[in-house]
Design a binder for these strands. Structure first.
Length: 206
DNA sequence: AAAACGGGGGC
DNA sequence: GCCCCAGTTTT
């Protein structure tokens, strides 16, 4: 299958770039942690509110956990995340001179950071060629027939084989936007889909 | 492999 | 009231 065709057709529909207004790796790391299992409108507001008060690892460590909790009260798992933000900040100070490491192995050592979050940081903060596989990317890659996988990590590996490197950084945002608006988890809107002719599941519908 | 963490929004 | 959401960690 011609995978470039997929991205060339989706790109004009979703020109907006995620995290377009923020480049600070620490902000991207923390806001990505906050985004886990939480809608992005909520995440956006909470991240900005948090960083208006504390914007560096040192400030996070110096802050009262209760204060951080109250600032991010509306995101999911906010107590757990508040604790992890302090843990992460302390590790960055102790191990990385208060900088966010630009390397998968080091990122994965941080509490609350899995492959999806680590790949988002590598891609959005450091512009590395990384594919961040969340539930949307996983679902859509399988629906299209791009991959045939069970776990997100398998999807990441298979996508790396199927997708030209120059598109790796775009896969996450394009598939997430596409997944939220058209290729939804249940009842995808195939009648308005611009890549239906490329989809392995189109015949199964109806 | 499945459960647990969890508040907010949509229907 | 019930279901889902830009996942990760623990059992």
């Amino acid at each position: 299958m011609d995978t470039e065709e997929i991205f060339d057709r989706l790109k004009p529909l979703y020109p907006h770039e995620y995290f377009s207004t923020e480049r600070d790796p620490f902000y991207i790391l923390i806001s990505t942690v906050l985004s886990q299992r939480t809608r992005d409108e909520v995440t956006e507001v909470a991240s900005r509110r948090l960083f208006e008060h504390y914007s560096t690892p040192v400030q996070m460590v110096g802050a009262d956990v209760k204060s951080i909790e109250s600032l991010i009260r509306d995101v999911g798992f906010y107590r757990v995340k508040a604790g992890r933000i302090k843990e992460i900040s302390q590790i960055l100070i102790d191990e990385y001179y208060s900088q966010v490491p630009a390397c998968m192995d080091e990122l994965l050592k941080l509490p609350g950071v899995g492959r999806k979050t680590a790949n988002c940081v590598l891609s959005y903060a450091f512009l590395e060629k990384a594919i961040a596989v969340d539930t949307h990317v996983h679902r859509i890659s399988n629906r299209l027939g791009l991959v045939d996988t069970v776990t997100p990590e398998q999807t990441e590996i298979e996508l790396q084989k199927q997708v030209p490197v120059s598109y790796w950084r775009e896969v996450n945002e394009l598939f997430v936007q596409f997944g939220k608006t058209v290729c939804k988890p249940l009842s995808p809107d195939c009648e308005v889909c611009v890549i239906e002719d490329l989809c392995a599941k189109k015949e199964k519908k109806k």
